[in-house]
């Protein structure tokens, strides 16, 4: 099994080594968390409103037993979510506007969009 503490210290080490590039503010406060669920290859909610110009932590829960890939060309995001798992995807800061996303594995049904508003 993975030694979680050890990994955390790795992460801290990496934060230190590339410290000038990382956002130190979010380590302390943390960006707002938005939850999206995947069920029957659909996103719930399919439209997510977020504040513009702010970093957001998307918590995507896959309630289906099959894997899905969260993908968005406008957000430049791509991530596989195994069946019955959850992942975190950081997005933003985004300019106001609509950012569609979809499930790469079931793009006919799994469609949604993020709306960044001032």
């Amino acid at each position: 099994m993975i030694n979680y503490m050890k990994i955390l210290s790795w992460k801290n080490f990496l934060y230190l080594s590339i410290g000038f590039l990382t956002y130190s503010s979010n380590v302390i406060a943390g960006p707002p968390i938005i939850e999206i669920e995947i069920k029957d290859h659909l996103f719930f909610p399919s439209t997510v409103e977020i504040p513009a110009n702010k970093k957001i932590k998307l918590l995507v829960k896959n309630l289906d037993p099959t894997p899905e890939e969260f993908e968005s060309y406008d957000l430049n995001r791509e991530k596989v979510i195994a069946g019955n798992r959850k992942v975190i995807i950081f997005i933003g800061p985004l300019a106001p506007g609509e950012y569609p996303f979809f499930g790469e594995f079931y793009p006919k049904t799994a469609q949604g969009k993020i709306v960044a508003i001032e």
């Binding site: 069920k39 029957d40 659909l42 399919s46 006919k108 049904t109 469609q111």
Partner: peptide, 9 residues
């Protein structure tokens, strides 16, 4: 247009 309800698109 498209819409989601009843677990379908």
């Amino acid at each position: 247009d498209y819409t989601n309800f009843d677990g379908y698109r």
